[in-house]
Amino acid sequence: MEADLPRMLEVVEGLSFTIPCLARAHPPPHYSWSRDGVGGELGSVGGGVGVSAGRVWVRGAVAGGARAGPNDAGGYTCVAANGAGTDTAHFTLAVVQEIQVSAHPPVQVSSGALGPPERGQGRQFGRFFSFLVFFFF
């Protein structure tokens, strides 16, 4: 198997992913894929023929999926075999979520709030600010 292929792969949830398993051999090897914790093979194919096992597809030396989800995370094993022998490579797929940040509660600034507070308004702003500090800490 190709030693320089990454064995730990990371994909953002909802995006497509591929796991390459490349062997140099003559005659060309027959590839089979399995997944940790899932009984049986995901696919066993030779050449460019493709098969699908649920959300994950296999096309020769590559396994992948159209939309990565949490259930796709885990270990994948590729076995390449021909008349001269067999070789195995194990890959780990991590599915991560994008970070989304929002402010709660939404902060609204009126046009009058940009200048110095008028008499009697400082106390109201102070209470609001104290609320924000309490809310975030």
Rank of each mutant, 00 (worst) to 15 (best):
R127T: 10
P29S: 00
G112T: 08
S110R: 07
F137W: 08
G126L: 14
M1I: 13
G65D: 03
F135G: 03
L132C: 13
F91W: 05
S110F: 01
L42P: 03
T86C: 02
Q124Y: 10
L15H: 13
V38F: 02
H26E: 14
H30G: 00
G14Q: 11
G85I: 09
F135H: 14
V96C: 04
A63Q: 12
C21S: 09
S44Q: 11
Q100N: 14
V49K: 13
V38G: 00
G43F: 09
S111A: 08
A61I: 00
R127K: 12
A66V: 15
W33P: 00
G69N: 07
G112W: 02
A53W: 07
F128D: 12
W57Y: 15
P70H: 06
R123N: 09
D36E: 15
E41L: 12
C78A: 03
V58D: 07
E98H: 05
G46F: 07
V107M: 06
G64V: 07
D36G: 13
D72C: 05
H90D: 08
C78H: 03
E41N: 01
D87E: 15
G74Y: 11
S44D: 12
D72F: 04
V45H: 01
V49A: 14
H90C: 03
H30P: 00
G60N: 02
F125H: 13
F131M: 13
G54A: 06
G83S: 14
P116S: 06
R59K: 14
G65A: 04
H30C: 05
A23K: 04
N82K: 13
P20I: 00
R24C: 03
L42I: 10
S34C: 03
G54I: 04
G14W: 09
A81W: 03
E118W: 00
A3S: 10
W33T: 01
L22F: 09
S111D: 07
W33Y: 03
N71R: 13
P106M: 07
P116F: 01
A80Q: 10
V133T: 15
